[in-house]
């Protein structure tokens, strides 16, 4: 099993994602430099990590979209390969057209780093099968532009196809406005594509997957991926 962690200029959760895949999960993992635009088919899963690709200048993900590796990620995803984009990775996948909608500035207009609670909306994906439906988990967010928005038609589509994987919720699982940290429409925290092989999420599961950090709620994401790859 081989993981690839994409490194854009300005990616800064690349080491964290590498650490999880390589040392916590124990799988072969490599960095993929954005200029080395070669075929990704040798990988079983591609992680597009968080950070500030191109400094988030212009708008997050807008410049990374034109980076040579992005075409390869698209090819890989369209061929059915597993791609997970976390935080800035989610923003890039949206800009690249692999996921619908847009991530706008948080409604507080401030960067927010804190733990939030997520309710599992769809556990029938390669990224979430280790959780139970409706389960509430604690995962941190750290972003300035995580306010998910999509037009009504797109939202309808997302809901109809069960593409909403996580929503921001209270600790009791209520998806209320009070539990919404950034203004995302319908409290959306993470979505997948129709084929279920591409996931984008604003929260950082790699930051809560080890006992020493006091929270292992995020580990299920990586376990789900490994389980899926082992079974397929």
């Amino acid at each position: 099993m081989k993981f690839g962690v994409i490194v854009f200029p300005g990616s800064n959760c690349d080491h964290d994602c590498y650490h999880i895949a390589k040392h916590v999960m124990g799988h072969d993992t490599s960095y993929v430099w954005h200029k080395d635009a070669s075929d990704l088919s040798g990988y079983d899963c591609i992680i597009v990590p968080g950070g500030f690709s191109y400094g988030d200048y212009l708008r997050p993900g807008a410049i990374a979209k034109y980076s040579p590796i992005t075409e390869e990620i698209k090819k890989y995803a369209n061929g059915g390969g597993l791609v997970i984009g976390i935080c800035n990775g989610f923003q890039i996948l949206i800009e690249a057209g692999l996921l619908p909608g847009v991530l706008m500035r948080n409604r507080s207009l401030k960067f927010i780093c804190q733990d939030v609670y997520l309710k599992m909306e769809n556990t029938d994906t390669p990224f979430s099968s280790e959780y139970s439906a409706g389960q509430v988990v604690k995962v941190p967010i750290a972003h300035h532009d995580g306010n998910y928005f999509a037009d009504d038609a797109t939202l309808k589509d997302l809901e109809a196809n069960n593409q909403v994987v996580f929503r921001y919720a209270t600790v009791k699982g209520e998806t209320s406005d009070e539990a919404n940290p950034n203004g995302s429409v319908s409290n959306i925290a993470g979505i997948c594509n129709k084929n279920r092989n591409v996931l984008g999420m604003m929260p950082h599961p790699e930051r809560c997957a080890e006992k020493v950090l006091g929270n292992k709620d995020g580990l299920g994401i990586f376990r789900s991926i490994v389980k899926h790859l082992t079974q397929s």
Binding site: Y54, Y57, L58
Partner: peptide, 14 residues
């Protein structure tokens, strides 16, 4: 203007 600089560089690469 760091943003302008990054945008210019990107325009050049495409």
């Amino acid at each position: 203007d760091p943003q302008g600089k990054a945008v210019q560089h990107s325009l050049e690469t495409i």
